[in-house]
Design a protein around this nucleic acid. Structure first.
Length: 439
RNA sequence: GUGAGUGUAGUUCAGUGGUUAGAGCGCCAGAUUGUGGAUCUGGAUGUCGUGGGUUCAAAUCCCACCACUCACCCCA
């Protein structure tokens, strides 16, 4: 076997890139409608950014980062997620001067050193939004609404929205202490992982899927009972906002998420087609991340969508549109004597905005016709001895089989008219068929 | 990082120690001396994932590595 793409990476082939463009365009269009603007940040940053931003005791930073030294001895890391870079750019370029909140979106590859499997790769793609500089709960609603609307627009409806409020720096420490004490008291009923987590990050024990641990956690004190008044109020406003917009959701007291920077609101959109219910979109509020990264203490809220997971869901639901870029006209020639003239014709058509294609394999006319059919080309121009002698071309409609001879001086102009207006292509094509059939 | 399964033509797969490794689909050509998707006929495919070992003999058995898939961990 020759060289392959590195483990956990893959090529997006021409047959797929159209579908990606469709999904990306949907996201960009809706972002524009919600007032979010694109920000493009580097795919590598100083390692320190992710240590501070994502949290040095998260799995992402502990064992999943692609970290390397450049020739100047600097420690750099390929970005494992999008938020840290966006916040860094926000601080570095004083974007708050444009007026708060600053609403941004990003789209691009992320990197995590993990064992690959379906919907999980070492290089994957994330689309995400971040709204910085306001703690208004309606901003949370706006962000969740945007995520919801994007998934709806893509017709991903086998989806469940789970939300929770995990408190702020005022009320969470006390709750964590209470939870920790509770977990210590039931230590012998917990798995080894949870015993460890109960020390380092007690909230994360809620992520455990073991039924024995779940039984302990079912009786554990709830964050919802420990929220301060401000958090309680924030969460209630958020929920009533979602109710108002008619967005269905489920309050999940055990939803905590794996990144350290979240405060108050956390949410996930999970697909409901499989038992595992993989997260397609996850996000939340991070009210101190900006300060953590060195800016003024400013709140923020955002989410990330896994592009590969979106693609998987679209495929499973057979909702993937076919988006092959069409070729309008195929120019075929009968023998090598006509190749030059045929090539000139293709070139003229292209200059007039007509997507035209020609054979480069010196293949038989039959093979050229077959190629045209395979590409789904509607019209073929045929150039042979007779046509050259008559200074004409034969125009063939591949759907009806109708043919007509047309003077060379007219053909480019005729096709230019047929295909020049993108919106009118369908109508114009119908017109063309009638004309051809009429002969 | 842990555990399990898989790796044979472009593709889907058959072949479990014995000549020159097969089939469907696809591709190419011809039937149709200038015309596509149907039909018929013919043709080309391959370091049997890679490397080592056992054997008179390995796609087949053993080991290592690589890749893919699934589960765990965790997440998008």
């Amino acid at each position: 076997m020759a060289l392959q793409a590195p483990r956990g990476t893959r090529d997006l082939l021409p047959e797929e890139t159209g579908q990606w463009q469709y999904v990306e365009t949907t996201m960009r269009t809706l972002c524009a409608r919600y007032g979010f603007q694109e920000l493009r940040t580097p795919i590598f940053e100083y390692t320190q950014l992710f240590d501070r931003g994502v949290g040095s005791d998260t799995d992402i930073v502990e064992k999943e980062m692609y970290t390397f030294q450049d020739r100047g001895g600097r420690s750099l890391s390929l970005r494992p997620e999008g938020t840290a870079g966006v916040v860094r750019a926000f601080v570095e370029h004083h974007l708050e001067e444009a007026g708060l909140p600053v609403k941004l979106y990003y789209l691009g590859p992320m990197f995590r050193y993990e064992r690959p499997q379906a919907g999980r790769q070492r290089q994957f793609h994330q689309f995400g939004v971040e709204a910085l500089g306001s703690e208004d709960p309606y901003l949370d609603v706006e962000v969740i609404d945007l995520g919801w609307t994007i998934l709806q627009a893509l017709k991903i409806d086998a989806i469940r929205l789970e939300i929770n409020c995990i408190g702020c720096h005022l009320c969470r420490p006390a709750y964590e202490k209470t939870l920790k004490t509770y977990l210590q008291d039931h230590r012998d009923q917990l798995c080894a992982d949870c015993q460890r987590r109960s020390e380092t990050n007690p909230l994360r024990t809620f992520d455990c899927k073991r039924s024995s641990c779940q039984a302990v956690l079912a009786e554990a004190p709830r964050i919802s009972d420990a929220l301060c008044d401000a958090c309680q109020q924030h969460f209630e406003t958020l929920c009533s906002g979602l109710d108002m917009l008619g967005i269905p959701y489920q309050k999940t007291a055990t939803l905590v998420r794996g990144l350290d920077y979240y405060t108050r609101t956390v949410f996930e959109f999970k697909e409901t087609l499989t038992a595992e219910a993989a997260t397609v979109c996850g996000g939340g509020r991070y009210d101190h991340l900006v300060a953590e990264i060195g800016g003024k203490d400013q709140p923020g809220v955002g989410f990330g969508i896994g592009m590969e997971r979106v693609m998987l869901l679209l495929e499973q639901a057979s909702r993937m549109p076919s988006t092959r870029e069409p070729i309008d006209v195929y120019v075929a020639f009968a023998s090598p004597q006509q190749q030059g003239m045929a090539f000139d014709l293709v070139s003229q058509l292209r200059r007039q905005g007509v997507a035209a294609e020609i054979d480069h394999g010196r293949r038989s006319l039959k093979a050229q016709m077959r190629a045209a059919a395979r590409k789904g080309v509607r019209l073929v121009l045929l150039l042979g001895e007779e046509e050259v002698a008559e200074q004409a071309v034969t125009l063939r409609d591949m759907e009806t089989g109708a043919q007509r001879r047309i003077p060379r001086t007219e053909i480019v102009q005729l096709l230019h008219q047929q295909f020049s207006s993108p919106d009118a292509i369908e109508l114009q094509m119908r017109g063309a068929v009638h004309e051809i059939n009429g002969c």
